[in-house]
Amino acid sequence: MHFDPTLALAAFGIGIVVGLTGMGGGALMTPVLVLFFGVAPLTAVSSDLVASAVMKPVGSFVHLRRGTVALPLVKWLCIGSVPSAFAGVLIARALGNDEAVQSGIKVALGIALLIAAAGLAIRGYTRLLERARVRDGRLEPLPQDRPDVAVRPLPTVLVGAVGGLVVGVTSVGSGSLIIIALMALYPGLTASRLVGTDLLQAVPLVFSAAVGHILFGDFQLDLTTALVVGAVPGTWLGAQLSSRAPGGLIRRALAFVLCASALKLLDVDNATTGIILIAALLITPLIWMLIRHRHGFTPLPWREPQEPRPERETAGV
């Protein structure tokens, strides 16, 4: 068995992002395997999911111990996600393993990453609007923590089912897609509870998909071992930091990486990819400054007067 320390180091960095934000497992790990380590897409999906089945419980245990998990939501999400994740593996397997299927999985990955990146941008904007309404007295400030969540069973099950299907086929979505849907359904959840809830619901979801890929996918033990060795300590470290560090900057960086990975997975040429990413680096901050100014905030967030604010505000904007 060949162990790749470079791959383990990359997995360590991705694990930190997963533990810190609840996002970026399949959305970063699978593209890294495909783009930088030359792993076939189906093999990357299979090995990433099996590694995630070991990685996710580490971060979720930290959040369970700290009480930052909405357990009723986990139950309803899993009712939808666990069977659909396994079904997604069967669908991917039924499509075959030839070049056309591998290409199709790459395209599906690219589209899923673009959706995830767009969701992150939408989340940042809605958080800014919420802060403006609180400041102007049009919205009551949310308390630091809301342990009692009014569960919406049917929408929650549907989110789990759709997310599980996407995860089973592409390995993307257990964090980046589902957590965005949770933000829309349950805006009262603080950032740390969103991350903790998402990490815990992803444990049975990813385990179901991982079992399917072990049985029917293209799982490789040496590849998965390197991922686990790097990702597990990274996830533990990220989860330890998640209740202390603001997630806004990390989510912006994650959105940039998601876009870059998506463009390459969609076979956009290097020159065009470079132009798009450079333009995003130069133009996006200016647009964000204008949006902040329009809603009455200082263009540069670090120049704002420091006031005690609810955690969900500091983490999302």
Rank of each mutant, 00 (worst) to 15 (best):
S261L: 08
V157K: 00
G13L: 05
A121N: 08
I283R: 09
K264N: 11
G15M: 03
A280P: 10
A210T: 03
M55V: 14
L158G: 01
H213M: 06
L177H: 03
A191D: 13
G248C: 06
A8N: 09
G119E: 09
F216K: 10
A161Q: 04
S243E: 09
I122W: 07
P31Y: 05
I105R: 14
R193F: 09
L129Y: 02
A92L: 03
G168C: 11
V195A: 10
L189H: 00
S103Q: 14
D198G: 08
H213R: 02
R135W: 04
A271S: 13
L165Y: 03
A92V: 07
P310H: 08
G104N: 02
V195F: 11
V162H: 01
A260E: 06
V257I: 12
S208H: 00
M29S: 06
H295N: 11
L120F: 11
V82F: 01
V211W: 02
P187H: 07
S243M: 11
R131T: 12
L64P: 14
G22D: 10
P147E: 13
P187W: 01
C259F: 12
A92M: 08
A202D: 08
T68R: 05
S242W: 04
L286H: 04
G238L: 02
L35C: 08
L71V: 14
A210R: 00
M183A: 05
P299K: 06
L185I: 02
S81Y: 02
I105M: 07
V58I: 15
R244E: 11
V58T: 15
G88A: 06
S242G: 09
K75I: 12
D148T: 14
E130H: 01
L154Q: 00
E311I: 14
G175Q: 06
L237Y: 14
S47C: 00
A245M: 14
L114K: 05
C78S: 06
E311G: 15
T298D: 14
T284V: 15
V229M: 04
I180C: 01
N97G: 09
V34A: 02
T284P: 05
L286S: 10
G188L: 02
T197W: 12
I278A: 15
A132V: 11
G248L: 01
T21K: 09
I283P: 02
T156S: 00
L95T: 05
A108Q: 03
F297R: 07
Y125V: 15
G19R: 05
T235I: 10
R127K: 03
N97E: 13
L142H: 08
D198P: 08
S60E: 13
I178C: 06
R309K: 10
A44G: 06
L300V: 15
R133S: 12
A161K: 02
T272S: 10
M23G: 09
R252K: 14
L199V: 11
V157L: 08
G119S: 10
A271M: 12
R294M: 11
A184V: 03
L33N: 03
L64A: 15
R135T: 02
V62I: 09
R303M: 11
G15A: 06
P143V: 13
L109A: 13
